[in-house]
Amino acid sequence: MEAAIARYLEPRIPGAAGLNVSNLFRIPGGASRETWMFDASWSAGGETVTANFILRKDPPASLVESDREVEYTFYDAFAESAVPVPRMRWLEQDESHLNGAFFIMERILGCDSSPRRIQEPDYAEARPMLARQLYEIAAAIHTFDWRQSGIARLIDAPAPETCWSREVAYWEDMIDRNELTPQPIARAAIRWLKRNPPPPAQRVSVVHGDYRVGNFLYTKEGIKGIVDWEMAHLGDPLEDLAWSFMELWRVGTPLMGGIVQRDEAIRTWEAASGLKADREALHWWDVFSGVKAQGIWVTGAKAFDSGKTQEPILAYTSWGLINRQDEILLHSMGRDA
């Protein structure tokens, strides 16, 4: 694979000669694509140049079904904005280069990303600052003027009053197509969501789609990059807020993402965005988050069951997460006791 990447890159970097790829490793991360890190070095104008990259490549099967051009476009739209993202370099739809479509972005060095790492004692002092930044950046995403970016060209925007119904329809269809066994709790939740729609979105915003601890790069000095945009879309910003609060991400603590009180996160987001997190609407999105997560887990389980992939993380969705998600759904609907 190193040689194939080198063959791809060299003609795309002006003046580069003798390009060499090293330290190629697959790394954890991303629900829908294989993620690889590598270093590249080449000669240009008599100098040796080195650079560090991340490559995201379509796998045989995945947890979610997403379009690589959409993911690339969302990353690219936030370049040089208040939302820190890695710089995007190349999007390649031709599958012949690496046996699958892919994109390459620059690698942000020296960061942690794990939800567990941020819990460790040496992060105790930095955690409140990281939590505040997380919801300030969420506000920046949700108030971003996407109409002036490439996103507007690629993505159909819902009307404010259809943000909720479009998402419910999408994830219900995902469960319809992929459940291996009937899901009576998720089905009851979907009926509840349809009977009790939230108010129209305050604004149609960029929604990251998987905004949570684990999907940003951080150091003790701050958040350096928001990553994993494969489920990004346009919709109601409360969707991201509720998703980031989901019980599954709390790593055994009472705190959202293991790092912040719910009310404090809401206050930070409201102050930074000028938007309001209506508590009833947010509760609707809490329940929706459980349905969406169940859609992801049943899709992963089916991918494993079908034999398209044998990655343990996809079997884990079935054995570890589907019933846990049902427990969370019961809790969010007030049906757990």
């Binding site: 709790i185 846990r324 049902d326 427990e327 049906r335 757990d336």
Partner: peptide, 19 residues
């Protein structure tokens, strides 16, 4: 029916799930 759905998650509960 809700009681049965609660019971179904209790029957399937496993220890050791992350989150």
């Amino acid at each position: 029916i809700w009681q049965e759905l609660r019971s179904s998650t209790a029957r399937r509960h496993v220890e050791g799930v992350i989150g």
